[in-house]
Design a protein around this nucleic acid. Sequence first.
DNA 1: CATTTTGTTGACCCATGGGTCGAACAACAA
DNA 2: TTGTTGTTCGACCCATGGGTCAACAAAATG
Lengths: 213, 213
Amino acid sequence: MTKPTPKRAWGQAIQNRDEQFEMKRQVVLRTAARTYSERGFHETTLADIAEELNISKPTLYYYFKNKDEILFECHRLGIEAITDGETPMPAAGSCTGRERLEEFLRRYVRMVVDDFGTCLVMTGPNALEPKNRGKVIEGRRKIDQMLRDILQEGAQDGTLDCPDPKMTAMFVFGAMNWLPRWYHSDGGLNIDKLTERLIAFVMRAIAADRCQS
Amino acid sequence: MTKPTPKRAWGQAIQNRDEQFEMKRQVVLRTAARTYSERGFHETTLADIAEELNISKPTLYYYFKNKDEILFECHRLGIEAITDGETPMPAAGSCTGRERLEEFLRRYVRMVVDDFGTCLVMTGPNALEPKNRGKVIEGRRKIDQMLRDILQEGAQDGTLDCPDPKMTAMFVFGAMNWLPRWYHSDGGLNIDKLTERLIAFVMRAIAADRCQS
DNA sequence: CATTTTGTTGACCCATGGGTCGAACAACAA
DNA sequence: TTGTTGTTCGACCCATGGGTCAACAAAATG
């Protein structure tokens, strides 16, 4: 509870030098993402992050340019978790809009419950410096467009019934982005059940065949 | 765009002394709520707020104890906008759960689009000092409970069909709380249409009579 | 073992911004 | 006019926290 991050995760595992470096970077990022999400970006000091890792503040600067870059990397990883998943989204036309929607929701929920996704959604892009902010906003816009396209496609192939894809997309994103604020993986609620419930909710709202499950 | 807040809104209208005081307090609060929402609480300095009102920073301290109190008042007003509306919510049992749900959604959307409601939803309670945070969290909990109760009631009287009221409530709150992040009253989209769409969305998702409008 | 490279840190710097103080000014009363 | 109270502000204080630096430790290198 007080120390969720395992101590001494720092200097173990004598691998290649570069791998070691990269690995430590990742550890910093995870810790930062969690802390940013819990307390907020501005409420989190670099000293906090350092303390949680049992290292000193200057050490952070050996791995990152500044506080802003740490946040940016968290956001970047969150965005990538959706845009470039290991298995690509089924291409448009390869299946019905409804099926693609379900796949998208499943991915998005998985992402948004992860440390980086949570961080992406909890700490807005406002905190970022202009240049990075632009990139993050662009990334989010792409994700936004993905869902809109899917809804559009579903409306055309007749598997979905939503009059206004843009607005509907916003409702759905809202429901999903709110999730990190109340769902905690350590609670009794398991994530698969949650995902199914959310999909059921959305599908009832916009699937075209309204008189079946 | 650059100056949405009308200048010289400050020292006009020579009313009663106390009313004048109260009026200026309100002006500060509205300005603060807007600025907090747009830039975030920690990104907003008291100098920013003062500048927008063409007054000096110490003057703010004549009307408020500190930065925290300003935020707290904004949240309080946001919460009150729902819990004590001028016309009270129809009592449980006086009409169907579905009807009450519709009324609740209508109110909530109206509130969340207002300056204080937006501020409540955009800046989490984390920024507040412990004591005030407690009160705000309590207020939010009450609102939360309102919706859950309504859903429960609807499930019992057969007008709503949601297997898990708690979870469903969260989905619905998510959809609504996300609204201030993309809806801007100055855009082409009008609020009534938005409200109806949202209600339609939610009703399709959880209303019991699934094969009619 | 000497030396270079890689990691780590205590101590420090300093801009930012919340908060204070006392003086000035305005308004109203006597 | 003179006191009294209400209102405003310039100038200041100072804790916080992002960021830097020079020195030190620990591997790698030869």
